[in-house]
Computed example of a mutant assay.
Amino acid sequence: MTRPPTAAQRHVIDAADPVTGRLRGTEAQLAALVKRGLAFRHPRPPHDHFLTPAGHRLRETPAQAPVPEPVQEAPPDSGVFAARIGGEEGPVAGPARIREVHSAWQGLLELRRMTNPGGDVDRPCGWERAHLVRAAALALEADGHPPAPGTDLAGYRVRATPQPEAVAVHEPDPEALRGCAATLEKAGWQAGEHTEPRTGVRYVLASPRRA
């Protein structure tokens, strides 16, 4: 991208659905974003427009700032849905949060249907591979697993790993840890329990299944 988007185009990007990246705007605005490589037009009806990975990165970047690597979480109190990866301060449950998580998960399934070959909803899509920690955390929270609040040990914590396309899920309760692995398997991830050699702590290593 040789120059930043216009204010109107930036507004369209910022207003994109936080999970699916679905866009709303005039035909001219959407066409301009496609030309810049920030959006694509889905080939199947109703031919909606969605952010590309570059568009997602730009949406997560303050206006007029250089584009950094994708962030794992939205800033607190930003008004944008963010999957709880464990360790966040504040309440972690409640009717409003349950509704938000359910809506985000349904949106993610729709994104799988619209972007995976053959409309496959049983395995992760490109957005999930670009946001591994957030995607795994959303799958866990949507299935009812509680994230660890603040510095509390109880609950899951999803963290990035040095391995490509892999996240680590920590949960002190062995039964709950096995439940996290089962949830991720059901959500289309490959998941297995491992032991940290130095500490003996058990954790789940998970990566998106490709087929």
Score class of each variant (00 low, 15 high):
1 M>Q: 07
1 M>W: 08
1 M>N: 08
1 M>C: 06
3 R>L: 02
4 P>I: 05
5 P>T: 07
6 T>R: 05
7 A>H: 06
7 A>W: 05
7 A>F: 09
8 A>P: 04
9 Q>L: 07
11 H>A: 10
13 I>P: 00
14 D>V: 04
19 V>I: 07
20 T>P: 06
21 G>E: 02
23 L>I: 05
23 L>E: 04
24 R>T: 14
27 E>A: 15
30 L>N: 01
30 L>D: 00
31 A>G: 15
31 A>N: 12
32 A>Y: 05
32 A>H: 11
35 K>C: 11
35 K>W: 12
37 G>I: 00
38 L>H: 02
39 A>K: 01
42 H>W: 10
44 R>P: 07
44 R>C: 03
46 P>V: 02
48 D>K: 13
51 L>M: 04
51 L>V: 00
53 P>C: 05
56 H>L: 14
59 R>H: 06
61 T>L: 00
62 P>I: 02
62 P>E: 05
63 A>C: 13
68 P>F: 10
68 P>M: 05
71 V>Q: 12
71 V>F: 03
71 V>E: 08
73 E>L: 03
74 A>G: 07
75 P>Y: 01
78 S>Y: 00
79 G>Y: 06
80 V>W: 09
80 V>E: 10
81 F>C: 01
86 G>N: 03
89 E>M: 13
89 E>L: 14
90 G>A: 03
90 G>K: 07
91 P>M: 07
92 V>Y: 05
92 V>M: 07
93 A>F: 14
94 G>H: 13
96 A>F: 08
97 R>Y: 04
98 I>M: 14
98 I>Q: 15
99 R>W: 15
99 R>D: 15
102 H>A: 15
104 A>V: 03
105 W>Y: 09
108 L>V: 08
110 E>I: 15
111 L>P: 12
112 R>H: 08
114 M>K: 13
115 T>L: 07
115 T>A: 13
116 N>I: 05
117 P>T: 08
118 G>L: 03
118 G>H: 09
119 G>H: 11
120 D>L: 05
121 V>C: 13
121 V>Y: 07
125 C>H: 10
126 G>S: 08
126 G>I: 04
126 G>N: 02
128 E>L: 09
130 A>L: 11
131 H>N: 13
131 H>L: 05
131 H>D: 08
133 V>M: 08
134 R>I: 01
135 A>D: 01
136 A>K: 02
140 L>E: 00
145 H>V: 13
146 P>G: 10
149 P>V: 01
150 G>Y: 04
150 G>W: 01
152 D>Q: 11
153 L>F: 15
154 A>L: 13
154 A>Q: 09
155 G>N: 07
160 A>M: 01
161 T>Y: 07
164 P>V: 11
164 P>N: 11
165 E>A: 10
167 V>N: 08
167 V>T: 09
172 P>I: 09
173 D>C: 01
174 P>F: 03
177 L>Y: 04
177 L>I: 09
178 R>T: 15
179 G>A: 13
182 A>H: 14
183 T>A: 09
183 T>P: 04
184 L>C: 12
185 E>T: 15
187 A>P: 11
190 Q>H: 14
190 Q>S: 15
190 Q>P: 12
191 A>N: 12
192 G>L: 06
192 G>Y: 12
193 E>V: 15
193 E>H: 12
199 T>V: 12
199 T>I: 13
200 G>K: 08
200 G>M: 06
201 V>I: 15
203 Y>P: 03
209 R>I: 12
